[in-house]
């Protein structure tokens, strides 16, 4: 068994809702509420969930791009929440992030050269000749050409821009990359190019990914283990084969049955959930899913289910299994 490179325990991120003339806090949005999981070295952990479930907030809180409210994040044994911002900055060399929107995450006024070399400069590569070499190397690694370095982001297509984002993330040889919906803004044919590239890079550089996405089929394809989030909490976490063949949590089942499959001959049971995801500023008591759950019992309204092992390494938060 390999060691966990990242351990997240009881992570919470509450955003204050400001109101009134003095901007007093009148409530909280519980974006991430008691999230725990660990990622092993060299593994791809997928996190799926619908919009507003807190998956992106979780990704950013792990890197302390937004400060978590409570809980701890351990990277290779060091608790990140205790570090000063300077120590954190040093450590970010090892932890990088790729964002969803390749149009918004690159500065339109900088050339690719500068975009990719900035992290190099920040982390101490002073010689400009070395940086140029490294940029060239990185561009080739992600499947672009060296001459692309002198171009601006708007001269690239969406897929190419995402490649630039990946090159930038790779610049300082990180160990862990958090991928926040890296392919959801791309077309299908380009999406598969990027997914393949990310897999190649993982093998080549022994990377670990936390892969956040809303598309179940993409997550299934790339991940080793998958966690499902609902309203700021993890409801199910296991390896992908178990999750997709034997989903336990009613929400996971509904989510899977809702994914349209490009095959007209497949007949399957369809679970259509009623209503919308409740607001995270006023989450339901007990189990957050009980308002939409077809199997809700009395206990679900009152007691929040623990996130526990049901089978071997199959964690579920549901009263049905306890």
């Amino acid at each position: 068994m390999t060691n966990p490179i990242l351990e997240v325990s009881h992570l919470k991120k509450y955003f204050d809702i400001k109101g009134g003339i003095f901007g007093k806090s009148v409530g909280e949005v519980k974006a991430v509420d008691d999230l725990s999981f660990s990622v092993n070295e060299g593994e791809i952990l997928g996190i799926v969930g619908e919009s507003g479930c807190g998956k992106s907030t979780a990704g950013k809180s792990i890197l302390r791009l937004i400060e978590p409210t409570d809980g701890s994040v351990k990277f290779e044994g060091t608790d990140l929440t205790d570090l000063t911002s300077e120590e954190m900055r040093q450590l970010r060399k090892n932890m990088q992030i790729i964002f969803q929107d390749p149009y918004a995450s690159l500065n339109p006024r900088h050339k690719v050269e500068r975009i990719i070399s900035e992290p190099l400069l920040i982390h101490g590569m002073k010689s400009s000749k070395e940086r140029k070499e490294r940029v060239k190397e990185l561009l080739e690694i992600v499947g672009l050409e060296a001459y692309h370095a002198s171009r601006y982001p708007h001269q690239f297509s969406g897929g190419q821009r995402q490649r630039i984002g990946i090159a930038r993330a790779l610049a300082n040889n990180p160990k862990l990359i958090i991928c926040d919906e890296p392919v959801s803004a791309l077309d299908v044919s380009v999406q598969s190019q990027i997914l393949n590239l990310m897999e190649e890079l993982r093998e080549k550089f022994k990377l670990t990914y936390v892969f956040i996405a809303h598309d179940l089929s993409v997550v299934k394809h790339i991940s080793d283990r998958v966690g499902v989030m609902y309203l700021g909490r993890m409801v199910e976490l296991t390896d992908k084969h178990t999750l997709f063949n034997d989903p336990k949590h009613p929400y996971t089942r509904a989510l899977m049955s809702a994914v349209p499959i490009a095959d007209p001959d497949i007949e399957r049971e369809r679970i259509i959930l009623e209503g919308d995801v409740p607001s995270p500023s006023n989450p339901p008591t007990g189990c957050a899913f009980h308002t939409r759950c077809p199997y809700a019992m009395d206990i679900c309204k009152e007691v929040r289910p623990e996130f526990e092992n049901v089978d071997d390494k199959h964690l579920v938060a549901c009263h049905l299994y306890n």
């Binding site: 297509s157 044919s189 999406q191 190019q193 897999e199 089929s217 299934k220 394809h221 790339i222 095959d263």
Partner: peptide
Amino acid sequence: GLIRSLPNIRTTEQKLYSIPGTV
């Protein structure tokens, strides 16, 4: 190519097919 490049929730392939180039 479009159909082959879709990740399928039912089956598992090692590598996704991708159409080279862009539109």
